[in-house]
Design a protein around this nucleic acid. Structure first.
Length: 795
DNA sequence: CGTTGCACTTAGTACGTATTAG
DNA sequence: CTAATACGTACTAAGTGCAACG
């Protein structure tokens, strides 16, 4: 992003485009690398061919394996597997083919303490759960009756009873009500149509739906991308053909002749209507929706009631990949119950599939923590329905993640001395490993696994290529590449001399653009090596470790003084340091540039007001000048032109303000069927502004300040000036903060990288309410941390 | 032993609502 | 009180890593 953000003159849209152009340039250089893979379709230029071959290959693979039955009789097959599995006793007969360590359950007596709710949220949650259970009972879903609600699940505190046992078995019982499917497609009214070459097109509903997806996005940048248009058109035409083509004989060929505006406008109207609903109606709708969703929102795991994260099946639409994704614009097809696999315990009753449908498969896999799953058609991977972030399983793995990162503390010295010494190893692999580890440790790079051609061209450490690293002697390195989510990583940094030397060697011919920088390395080799230092150590642990470590160090620098607001500001500054380390970015918001400008104009105006008051002081008492010439210095610093600009701006704004006020008031009166305010009112208002303008004109002509009676006093003026100065500093600080934050996303590191116990300890020690740093959701997610860390906790 | 499948974490954006400045 | 802005959440894409596969 930073490519564009630095440039104030470039608009939002240009920014996006620039990013893409940048990407495309990289993409073309990639070819030399591809030779490595030497695919049968390596030189195929036609997307269609590619797709066909691709599909064929994938099919082949699936057939070879003879697994994953996707047909209706898949269920039968599975049932057999389950019935015979134990007798056969082979690992491969397990549902997902994974080896399972089936061990006898050691019934752990869980400490379920009844305790008074310490936090308000807790009550709320308990309530929620109870309501949910009640409604569930009413609707009598399969599992509800078996749950003992007298023991609210919220009292289960796994963190008070941590047994670091093997976690391959995720649950003993698992019951839920399945998933929510998106509503069926509702055809557009007959008069709303797609147009082709000026002619209305009669589409079969299936194709109309796809056209509608595009129409809905008409104002987004996505639809301007050629790839997006091409992919859309191909899939749209395919759906059209499948369903018998247009019904009035219009033949669609060229994208440019398609006109979606009528559909777009129809959607706009619909949206507007929805917005116009009265607050009560809106609330009613919301309540109905919540009521409907309740049974899906919760599930039962090991007898506890826990929340489900995403119980909604993703609706069909056009794929919006990040960056220059080759599949942008492709149709993401609708998912049917037949595509969906449910995971439940064997005793659980199976949720009723939607009428006329069957579930794709019912599974009983207790080694995974998903409730439901389906295969998606864009990249042929899986989508899962999982537990919510506040669930036990998620909490436990979060906890483990941070504990693992903390464990790295005890090994990091060894890792570091090791990679320093291996920088000079005669073995290339060792040196590559050393440099890569260094980059991951120092610059928080991701592992960087290999990617295929049908994904966006992004890289991480191991997949860095020649062109992503520029060397500037004596020891400066410029990184410039697109990382995860096609977010640009740009850094000019000084590195260890030995690192620099090694990079120089790695870039030596025959290496050139397109070549891998670390040609002997990939994440699995690197990770295998890292395991030597510490079990479970992988590349990503370094990010967690360094993020949390940085946060700890930053928090340690904050003095325990000042107001809560000041402490929060400092906490956020620490958070920002971490976000910058991890390169967590966000696009600047739509009105950022304008709002920054506005804010700085406001500051200028305040400065001017200050000068004005100072002049007034001198008018009242000339001797002040001698007493403190410095104090009045800034009067001369303000040029005539600057002052006039400010005058003009203020006057202009005042006029606008009154005009708007007038219009708005009249709109309202019209709506209420009242008489409009007379124009004379507006004129009166504007007259006031005219007077002000004249006043300013007089002032700048004579240099004499005209102030109201109450301010004809030196001390009062000084007080006013002091106030202004405060406001100015405040605004300036806020403005700077806003600027600094405009491209940095603080949330990602807070959610994923910073050990929450750090924040908890900070809050407890500094008397900052936890609500100020963790939102409600975050407090739920990090409940384990809030309840387990005290003010002395250290990472 | 490299490749692939699967399951999990990490990521930015869109959008509606709450908060704040004026 | 209104408009602008900030915040919070839902959504889903895009990574990582492990283990099975061939």
């Amino acid at each position: 992003m930073s490519i564009t953000l630095k440039d104030d003159s470039s608009s939002e849209d240009e920014g996006v485009m620039l990013k893409r152009v940048y990407k495309d340039a990289k993409h073309s250089k990639k070819n030399s690398k591809r030779v490595k893979n030497d695919l049968p379709n390596g030189n195929s230029d036609s997307d269609e061919d590619e797709d066909i071959i691709h599909a064929a290959r994938k099919k082949q693979k699936r057939e070879k394996k003879g697994k994953k039955p996707k047909t209706e009789d898949g269920e039968k097959v599975l049932k057999e597997i389950h019935n015979n599995g134990d007798e056969k006793g082979t690992n491969t007969s397990e549902p997902n083919g994974r080896k399972k360590v089936k061990k006898e359950k050691t019934p752990k007596v869980r400490k379920i303490k009844k305790e008074e709710a310490k936090y308000d949220d807790e009550d709320e949650d308990t309530m929620l759960a109870k309501i949910a259970s009640q409604s569930a009972v009413v609707k009598s879903p399969s599992w509800a009756s078996s749950v003992d609600f007298r023991e609210p699940s919220e009292d289960f505190k796994w963190w008070e009873n941590q047994d670091n046992e093997d976690d391959t078995i995720k649950w003993k019982t698992l019951k839920h009500n399945g998933v929510i499917f998106p509503p069926a497609y509702e055809p557009l009214p007959a008069h709303v149509k797609l147009y082709y070459d000026g002619k209305p097109v009669d589409l079969p509903p299936q194709a109309e739906e796809v056209a509608g997806f595009f129409a809905a996005m008409l104002e987004s940048d996505h639809v301007k991308i050629p790839t997006f248009q091409k992919n859309f058109l191909r899939d749209f035409l395919a759906v059209l053909k499948e369903n018998g083509g247009t019904r009035n004989g219009v033949e669609i060929k060229a994208f440019d002749k398609l006109d979606f505006t009528k559909i777009f406008e129809y959607f706009q109207v619909q949206k507007e209507q929805k917005k116009q609903l009265s607050p009560q109606e809106k609330k009613q709708l919301r309540l109905e929706k919540e009521e409907f969703e309740k049974p899906y929102k919760f599930c039962e795991i090991d007898g506890r009631l826990e929340q489900v994260g995403n119980f909604r099946i993703e609706p069909p639409g056009l794929f919006r990949g990040r960056g220059a994704h080759p599949k942008n614009g492709k149709l993401k097809r609708r998912v049917y119950p037949e595509d969906v696999v449910l995971n439940l315990d064997k005793e659980a009753s199976i949720p009723e599939p939607p009428k006329g449908h069957k579930w794709g498969e019912i599974r009983h896999d207790d080694t995974v923590q998903w409730l439901s799953m389906w295969r998606e058609n864009i990249s042929n991977s899986f989508k899962y329905v999982r537990f919510a972030a506040n669930s036990t399983l998620k909490g436990m793995s979060d906890f483990r993640k941070f504990e693992k990162a903390r464990m790295l503390k005890d090994h990091i010295d060894k890792v570091r001395t090791d990679y320093k010494s291996k920088m000079k190893s005669p073995k290339t692999l060792d040196r590559q490993m050393a440099v890569a580890t260094y980059l991951i440790d120092v610059f928080a790079l991701r592992a960087g696994g290999e990617k295929s051609d049908d994904e966006a061209d992004t890289v991480g450490c191991c997949s860095l290529r020649y062109e992503h690293v520029t060397l500037r002697p004596p020891n400066t390195v410029v990184f410039d590449f697109l990382g995860k989510d096609s977010i640009r990583f740009y850094q000019e940094v000084e590195v260890d001399t030995q690192v620099f030397k090694n990079l120089k060697i790695f870039k030596r011919p025959p290496s050139g653009p397109g070549h891998q920088l670390f040609d002997r390395l990939d994440p699995s080799i690197l990770n295998k090596h890292l395991q030597n230092y510490m079990p479970g150590l992988t590349a990503k642990v370094f990010r967690t470790y360094n993020a949390s470590k940085t946060m700890q160090d930053q928090l340690d620098l904050i003095p325990n003084q000042g107001t809560v607001a000041e402490k929060i500001l400092k906490y956020n500054a620490a958070n920002r340091t971490v976000a910058i380390l991890c390169n967590h970015q966000r696009t600047v918001t739509k009105g950022h540039a304008t709002s920054v400008q506005k804010a700085s104009e406001r500051i200028e105006e305040l400065e001017w007001q200050k000068v004005r008051y100072k002049r007034a002081i001198l008018q009242l008492d000339k001797s002040q000048q001698k007493k403190n010439p410095k104090y009045f210095k800034e009067i001369d610093d303000l040029s005539k032109e600057e002052e006039l600009t400010i005058h003009k701006r203020i006057i202009e704004r005042e006029r606008e303000k009154y005009k708007r006020k007038f219009e708005r008031e009249n709109d309202k009166r019209k709506f209420d069927k009242e008489d409009p305010i007379p124009d004379s009112q507006l004129l009166e208002w504007l007259g006031k502004v005219d007077d002000l303008e004249k006043l300013y004109e007089r002032e700048s002509k004579t240099g004499k300040v005209e102030l109201r009676e109450s301010l004809q006093d030196v001390d009062k003026l000084k007080l006013q000036i002091e106030k202004l100065e405060k406001r100015i500093t405040n605004s300036a600080v806020q403005l700077k903060d806003k600027e600094d934050n405009s491209t940095v996303a603080l949330g990602t590191s807070k959610i994923n990288y910073i050990d929450p116990r750090l924040s908890v300890a900070f809050c407890k020690k500094f008397d900052v309410p936890i609500e100020k740093v963790f939102t409600k959701t975050l407090r739920d997610k990090f409940k384990w941390a809030i309840e387990s860390a005290d003010e002395n906790w250290k990472f």
